[in-house]
Amino acid sequence: MKSATLAQIQADRAAKRAVVLATNLATGAERLIYPNALDGLEPLLAAAVGNAARNDQSGNVDTPEGKLFLHVFNPPLRLVVVGAVHIAQPLARMAALAGYDVTIIDPRSAFATNERFPGVTISTEWPDEALAKLKPDARTAVVTLTHDPKIDDPALEATLRSPAFYVGSLGSRKTHNARLYRLHKAGFTETETARIHGPVGLGIGAKSPAEIAVAILAQITERLRQPKS
């Protein structure tokens, strides 16, 4: 690989721009292809690059110019945590280790401080406004942790209208049932609200904030890697 190619990939990753490195494994010849700018590319290659980026799946493709290895560099997975509460602290750190770009949303500015969440992107906007800007996509997970309907509900409503691959909401079964009742009154169907994982996290008997964070991150991982189970 040329140093210039490596530098460009690093620049694209820093800018959170998807890029695909196409390498001819027989010759080492390489070039960078941008999945959002496929016009003018050989159609077979364009389709393969588009699929690889969409599925986040690197692989080989036979083209008129030979067999190419397509190495996908997608922007990181994203985790949006609504509620800058105690559980959010270990969750933000663990999720960052697992490769997530973490954003914490909490309009209560006493909770959402840089001291409590060093190095994490923080928004003190209301969740519906913050999520309108963040635009959760199929590589985004959203978790609400406040138990406060004023904060959690707008976040859930915005997330249910998005293709986010995971949505979870902290709260007891009773809290969750009340939440579902409100969302159904607001016009969401049972099929739609069935996307919400509540009570949140895998059932591993987690008690401490860090353990609950493990349970949540494990469930997010399960949805990411085994989406149909």
Binding site: M1, K2, S3, L6, T23, L25, G28, F69
Partner: peptide, 11 residues
């Protein structure tokens, strides 16, 4: 399992 690994020098 089986894997194929491409090795190249950084120029």
């Amino acid at each position: 399992g089986k894997v194929q690994v491409f090795v190249e020098r950084l120029e």
